[in-house]
Nucleic acid binder design. Structure first.
Length: 487
DNA sequence: ATGTCC
């Protein structure tokens, strides 16, 4: 007897614990799979996620199944929390399956400070960070620059930041892809996008983006934590942001171009927001190059915020950042597509792995994992809400087989921003966090705090539990917020 | 997410 669940005319069959399948039918090229507990599946079934996932199976060249991670929710065309691995020679590439915020991602910086070292300095620290790390909508970055410099950043990523003195060689080695995408093409990025980016280099932006000082509260795997340089009570810094207006502009430019030039493919797809360029076409190559360039821009963005953070810590604690051992643990992207070789039915194929709100989670042994972590698996950083903790995982042994080397990226929202503003008042949320949890929050706008209230997020513990039980990403450590700045 | 519509 098969266990099934039905949501809005979509039936899912239970394959095994935490694995639900929408069987292939009608125009679907492959089945779809949702990786979730029963509790998370109920939330995923609430909005358009399942229909979007089912639609995605119609993209030409989709391999095995379209996947939804445990934190999935509806997005533009393709679910946030979606993974689509598409043949890079005979399939297609879809900007909607990457997301508007190209290389939105997270990085964690270690320190050798303990929570005790920081207590009493929270207010000064949060204020100084807020003054020195640009945030909010619109312009204003750590550096104000010009189109020519933006082009350098787009082409060279972290290498540019090293030359300019904003990054070290160790920083570069601890970014996914070593902070520079080989196929990045600044010429494929419009002038308009470059102009939007030129005064946003080193800026958080708005929405769910933030910089958070955290303390490590739990260690689940001692040996892996040691390899990652994490221990209980340690202070770490988490930075979550992306490619700002530049990446957004790249996405809209190419959605429009692809819609215009590849109307034939578009006509076969169930949702125009899935617009895709056929593999081998001029636009597929151009979008891939422009996306790679926007990815480099986002890495530099997070690097300049790191640079400012180190300077702020130097000022507040009166020590050099090197003395506080403020090294980059790792920087992960969670809105990208990348050509990767994967095993499909016993054959190795080049695939465009689209991860939209999903994190690469390569296991131990893979050469893409930085040398320092190669024996334990890559670090995977999963931010929770500002009142809950965040997790550091390591890529699990089953990830290559189950999810094309991917896992979740966050807690995922449970209500709209509009609803959140009706249910919460920013200052109240802020006061409660400080009084009840000793969390110091500072934001450009009270509305942002309301929109990001801890209550609007799913249970990050449950997301991580499912990831761990599936063997795609294993919990290594947990952190809890101390100071949070945001747009 | 986003100069929340060129």
């Amino acid at each position: 007897m098969t266990t099934t669940r039905e949501f809005q005319d979509i039936t899912l069959e239970r394959v095994r614990e935490h694995v639900w399948e929408i069987p292939k039918s009608g125009e679907m090229r492959v089945p779809a799979r949702v990786l979730a507990s029963e509790e998370l599946l109920e939330q995923i079934g609430d909005d358009k996620t399942l229909q979007q996932l089912k639609n995605a199976t119609q993209l030409p060249g989709m391999q095995k199944y379209a996947l939804c991670m445990p934190d999935g929710h509806q997005g533009y065309g393709f679910p946030v929390g979606g993974v689509g691995a598409i043949d890079a020679e005979e399939g297609c590439i879809s900007p909607g399956a990457v997301g508007f915020d190209i290389n939105c991602g997270v990085r964690m910086i270690r320190t050798n400070l303990t929570y005790e070292d920081l207590q009493g300095n929270e207010e000064e620290l949060v204020e100084t960070l807020f003054e020195n790390v640009p945030s909010g909508l619109g312009g204003g970055g750590v550096v104000e620059t010009d189109v020519k410099t933006v082009e350098e950043i787009l082409e060279r990523g972290l290498d540019w930041a090293i030359e300019e003195g904003y990054a070290t060689e160790a920083d570069r080695l601890h970014c996914e892809d070593e902070g520079r995408r080989p196929n990045a093409d600044a010429d494929a990025v419009s002038e308009k996008a470059k102009n939007r980016g030129k005064n946003q280099v080193g800026s958080l932006g708005s929405g769910n983006h933030f910089l958070e000082v955290q303390r490590v509260t739990d260690i689940y795997k001692e040996d892996v934590a040691e390899a990652f340089g994490l221990e209980a009570d340690q202070i770490v810094v988490l930075i979550h942001c992306g490619s700002r207006g530049l990446g957004h502009q790249v996405c809209s430019d190419y959605v429009r171009k692809i819609e215009q030039r590849h109307g034939d493919l578009l006509a076969e797809l169930p949702d125009k927001d899935l617009a895709a360029a056929p593999a081998g076409s001029e636009l597929a190559a151009e979008y891939y190059g422009a996306m790679g360039a926007a990815i480099n821009f986002a890495w530099v963005n997070r690097q300049l915020i790191t640079h400012q953070t180190r300077k702020v810590f130097e000022r507040v604690f009166g020590r050099d950042w090197q003395d506080m051992e403020m090294e980059l643990l790792y920087d992960v992207a969670h809105n990208i597509a990348k050509k990767e070789p994967h095993d499909v039915d016993g054959e190795t194929r080049e695939l465009y792995v689209h991860r939209k709100g999903a994190t690469r989670a390569f296991p131990a042994g893979r050469e893409e994992v930085p040398r320092a972590y190669r024996d334990v698996g890559q670090p995977v950083i999963i931010p929770g809400s500002m009142g809950a903790g965040s997790y550091v995982l390591r890529g699990g042994a089953e990830s290559m087989q189950e999810t094309f080397g991917s896992t979740a990226h966050g807690a995922g929202r449970t209500m709209s921003r509009t609803q959140a503003k009706q249910d919460y008042w920013g200052e109240t949320v802020q006061d409660e966090l400080q009084e009840q949890n000793q969390i110091y929050v500072k934001a450009q706008s009270g509305a942002t705090i309301a929109e990001e209230a801890p209550g609007v997020y799913k249970d990050v513990d449950e997301v991580v539990r499912v990831s761990e039980e599936l063997g795609i990403g294993d919990a290594v450590a947990r952190t809890f917020p101390v100071c949070n700045i945001k747009g």
